[in-house]
Design a protein around this nucleic acid. Structure first.
Lengths: 249, 249
DNA sequence: CACTTTCATCCAAAAACATTCAAAATCAAT
DNA sequence: ATTGATTTTGAATGTTTTTGGATGAAAGTG
């Protein structure tokens, strides 16, 4: 096989997979490690790829690289505080549920390199989790256009066969009288099920959610622990019926 | 055999394959190495090809040669042609399966505003489909970091309860002898299942996939219709055992 | 820290190369 | 058709490039 052909093959592999190992190439091409290493060295000097220990990765334009990183930044300060605290509750080898939504999304960067399995119904959540090399199971079902949340009967069905050590949920309305509420019927059903399947369900909510009541009830307040940046005076009564954690700003 | 004929033959080979080895030519033309080398030297001086150690490669316009950029664009052009044709096969009210992978991803823009339901195991696919307001079901399961494909037993389980009018699959290797193959075991299982659940399974593959053999077999070639930009001479035998559609470039 | 994997470097064997030369084929004139 | 000149061919030669294994150093893993 021609050097040229090997080079082409390696670059094509990279085009598909972003990274290749020396081992993989030696097996597929049936050439020695020495040869493959030489190939990689040459291709690197041509700026066609970047060598890494054990193989090579695709060369990215700086712009691309930046946008990858950028994904993990910027949330409102209160959301981020809540998320960071929630993530600190996660223990090694937990199997946790992370609900779709922006507050729970903010937790994900704080889970980096933790030995946990995450089940989620948030498509962007799953994507970021995978990027951070966290074992991730995405629930199946209908995808909701606006929020990229997975919902529907299929979702509930799969959920009903899972069990979580902890669940971290977003919620639109939290009220003493009407409990935990959300605007979408199908999403409510999924949330309800996830809370039921978790040993310790937590609700992540900034202060604006308290006193709000939405269309569908998901669960009673006393079923969950609430995590917030600040509990408004008007909702102080909640502390009588369930545990509320106020994260220091 | 005339010198002129040999030259023609060599250039034709290059047109097909981009690179040829001296050895290959000597075997096929049944002439000595000396002769073939002379041919190559002459053709190079006529700027019809570029010599490399062990053989020769196709001459490219300088612009092409220089930028990796163009190569990527060009590659995705054939993918795009294949994808566009595949999308044209979709009929109203179909329930189709769209496999994870870049070729099938290219189909999605062509499905915009079509009254179809799409089931997929590609996370980016589902995301784009939702953005284009197409009814989308994402399969559940483990998410694969590199490709963002959903795989694993959970995935197969849900798949087994679905039925599709058509399935559009990507594939890494297509060979007369070894059938349809792919490098990842779990992904292979999902693909196999999806093909089984579809009334009309299609394989989308550019010409580079033919003759390739990967680690795991997914299905036999005759189970599917192949859609490609160009079927290489060496794989013509495929037309005897299944339907192959070559999309005009 | 021990242990494994991957790495760069060196070297000898193998493959591919340019060059030379005599035989074979082609041509051009008789 | 035969001869001699010319071109093309394939084998032989020695040189250069490429290859794959061996080695110990470096990096990654637990």
């Amino acid at each position: 096989m021609l050097t040229e052909e090997r080079h082409r093959y390696i670059l094509d592999l990279l085009e598909e997979k972003d990274t290749v190992s020396v081992q993989e190439i030696t097996e597929k091409l049936n050439h020695s490690e020495s040869t493959v290493r030489r190939d990689l060295t040459q291709l690197e000097s041509q700026q066609k790829l970047v060598r890494v220990h054990g193989g090579a990765k695709k060369r990215r334009r700086p712009s691309e690289e930046a946008s990858m990183e950028e994904k993990t930044v910027k949330f409102s300060h209160s959301k981020d505080r809540i998320a960071q605290f929630a993530a600190s509750l996660v223990e090694d080898n937990d199997v946790i549920y992370v609900d779709a939504g922006s507050t729970t999304f903010a937790m994900i960067p704080y889970l980096k390199d933790r030995p946990v399995t995450v089940v989620t119904n948030g498509v962007p959540h799953a994507s970021l989790l995978a990027d951070l090399h966290i074992e991730t199971i995405l629930l199946g079902g209908k995808i909701k256009q606006r929020t990229k949340a997975i919902i529907g009967p299929l979702t509930e069905q799969s959920l009903s066969r899972m069990y979580f050590t902890k669940a971290f949920m977003g919620m639109n309305g939290i009220s003493v009288e009407y409990g935990l509420t959300t605007p979408d019927v199908e999403e409510a059903s999924v949330k309800e099920r996830a809370i039921r399947q978790a040993n310790e369900p937590y609700i992540l909510a900034d202060s604006s959610k308290f006193g709000e009541v939405d269309f569908v009830k998901v669960a009673d307040v006393e079923d969950c622990v609430l995590i917030t940046d600040h509990l408004p005076q008007s909702s102080r009564k909640l502390t009588d019926i369930t545990k509320v954690i106020e994260v220091q700003a």
